[in-house]
Design a binder for these strands. Sequence first.
DNA 1: AAAACATACAACCGCACTTAA
DNA 2: CTTAAGTGCGGTTGTATGTTT
Length: 272
Amino acid sequence: MGRTPCCEKMGLKKGPWTAEEDEILVSYINKNGGHGSWRSLPKLAGLLRCGKSCRLRWTNYLRPDIKRGPFTVEEEKLIIQLHGILGNRWAAIASQLPGRTDNEIKNLWNTHLKKRLICMGLDPQTHQPAGSSRNPKDKAHAGSNSTRHMAQWESARLEAEARLSRESASFGSKTDSDYFLRIWNSEVGESFRGVHKSANNNMKSSSESPISVGSYSNKCGSVSATSNHVGSSTFLKEDFDSSCSSELQDSSDTSLQLLLDFPMNNDMSFLE
DNA sequence: AAAACATACAACCGCACTTAA
DNA sequence: CTTAAGTGCGGTTGTATGTTT
């Protein structure tokens, strides 16, 4: 159907935003209690930018709730975990990291995290050991990782719900279970359930489960325990030695560990 | 000191999806 | 139902900055 350009291209500015432009955009949005129509915003605000550019600048940089500064180790771990589940769905991943934008996460992934996975000998797309899916058949197979994983998710969800109802009277603080349910009920879980739906008919019980999350954590555990060629991948030692072997310090670590250590054989004893 | 190279990140582009007429 | 506008998203590029030679 052929899209028309979002704006007249002639005479509109491109490239980096100036402080003046930022100020105009921010004050316009503040004054009007929102951006309204992005398309008409530049004209109304007096900016020589297209609406798309304004939206991008606002959502990725000027929004007041944006958390700037370096990513924490926990955030990086979470991104890797979520990427294993969701793939390159940056917006969905960003929705689990308050104050972080999809663009920021995408940049982090492309500049740091992807390399780390490669250094660890993992395929950054499938989170499988590199070279394990050279067979073209495996390419199609890779798409079913989440399919195989969904039974575990579903089981874990049911377990968590049951456990939560048991514990709800005695716990006021965050537990593994409620964190799991929070994810399950979030966009991530929603996305996963979407996969579940579409793949439901193809679902077969599988004894082995080389799913992304499970195999990833296992790989990390074994690598950090045995690898002699860590080299530049300090990530392995610093992040995963601590996360895989030391005491968990807080609920977020615990929650992450829940995902990292997701069992590969439907053994849900970790929930007990 | 300067050129070459590498890295990080903001911004752009185009496609896909949603919604309203 | 069809069509086009509006918006969101992911891939990619351009440029500023840092590092190495």
